[in-house]
Amino acid sequence: MTDRLRGARRAGIVAAMAGTLIGTTACGVILYPERKGQVDGRIDPAVAVLDAVGLLFFIVPGVIAFAVDFGTGAIYLPGSANNTTLDLNEAELVKLKKGELDAATIERMIEEKTGEKVSLADPALRTRTPDSQAWLPLDAVLNDTQFAALTGVRQQAAR
């Protein structure tokens, strides 16, 4: 191989690696790291277009960019999720009688107080403990026995 071909080959490899590196970085995660952790909402058109540019150059990096942005929630516009969050300082404490602590009663009470129908077994439901700021699925806050006792749904062994 001549030096000229070797140099062209090396430049091509460097350009391909640079393109792959740029393409595999999800635009939403880079531009808006504070959006990580969102679960739902309206898609930010600017982030979607930037991720789609990756599809124009290379299919795999574009798909990876979309997957990372959807997986982290960085592709969603902030404040556009169709959910509600509670201010615990303004929350109303509801006391239940002994033996009333079951999923149906809790779901009914939430619906009466908020007007929203919920299912405690819904994987999209998020909750948090009073000492935490992180919103997690209910099955992550309770152990398997507590979750099964409350919802009547048994968790799979491997999580």
Results as ranks from 00 to 15, higher is better:
residue 92 E to R: 15
residue 3 D to K: 09
residue 10 R to Q: 13
residue 34 E to C: 01
residue 57 F to E: 11
residue 117 K to G: 03
residue 150 L to M: 07
residue 68 V to I: 13
residue 44 D to T: 08
residue 155 Q to V: 09
residue 101 L to Y: 05
residue 99 G to L: 03
residue 126 R to C: 00
residue 132 S to H: 10
residue 132 S to N: 12
residue 133 Q to H: 05
residue 156 Q to A: 10
residue 77 L to N: 09
residue 94 V to A: 10
residue 109 M to W: 04
residue 73 G to V: 08
residue 139 D to G: 02
residue 152 G to F: 04
residue 135 W to G: 02
residue 43 I to D: 05
residue 119 S to P: 05
residue 112 E to G: 04
residue 121 A to T: 12
residue 9 R to D: 01
residue 112 E to H: 05
residue 132 S to I: 11
residue 58 F to Y: 11
residue 125 L to K: 06
residue 61 P to Q: 06
residue 108 R to H: 03
residue 40 D to T: 13
residue 48 A to C: 09
residue 27 C to W: 11
residue 14 V to Y: 02
residue 54 G to T: 12
residue 124 A to L: 13
residue 155 Q to P: 01
residue 106 I to V: 15
residue 28 G to C: 08
residue 61 P to S: 04
residue 129 T to D: 11
residue 19 G to F: 08
residue 118 V to H: 11
residue 145 T to Y: 01
residue 125 L to I: 09
residue 138 L to A: 02
residue 19 G to Q: 03
residue 59 I to G: 00
residue 143 N to A: 07
residue 30 I to D: 00
residue 64 I to G: 01
residue 114 T to L: 10
residue 120 L to P: 02
residue 114 T to V: 06
residue 51 D to F: 01
residue 68 V to E: 09
residue 24 T to Y: 01
residue 31 L to E: 10
residue 27 C to S: 12
residue 85 T to P: 00
residue 45 P to D: 06
residue 106 I to H: 05
residue 63 V to L: 12
residue 135 W to I: 04
residue 28 G to A: 10
residue 41 G to E: 08
residue 34 E to L: 06
residue 135 W to L: 04
residue 17 M to C: 13
residue 123 P to G: 07
residue 21 L to T: 15
residue 156 Q to L: 09
residue 118 V to C: 05
residue 95 K to N: 08
residue 99 G to Q: 11
residue 2 T to M: 11
residue 156 Q to V: 15
residue 48 A to E: 11
residue 83 N to R: 14
residue 102 D to L: 02
residue 27 C to L: 09
residue 96 L to E: 07
residue 90 E to N: 11
residue 91 A to V: 10
residue 37 G to Y: 06
residue 109 M to Y: 02
residue 16 A to Y: 04
residue 9 R to Q: 04
residue 140 A to F: 08
residue 154 R to P: 00
residue 24 T to G: 11
residue 66 F to Y: 12
residue 157 A to C: 00
residue 70 F to D: 09
residue 110 I to V: 15
residue 33 P to I: 05
residue 103 A to P: 00
residue 4 R to V: 14
residue 109 M to E: 12
residue 121 A to G: 14
residue 77 L to T: 07
residue 63 V to N: 01
residue 75 I to T: 05
residue 39 V to K: 12
residue 112 E to S: 06
residue 37 G to R: 05
residue 6 R to E: 04
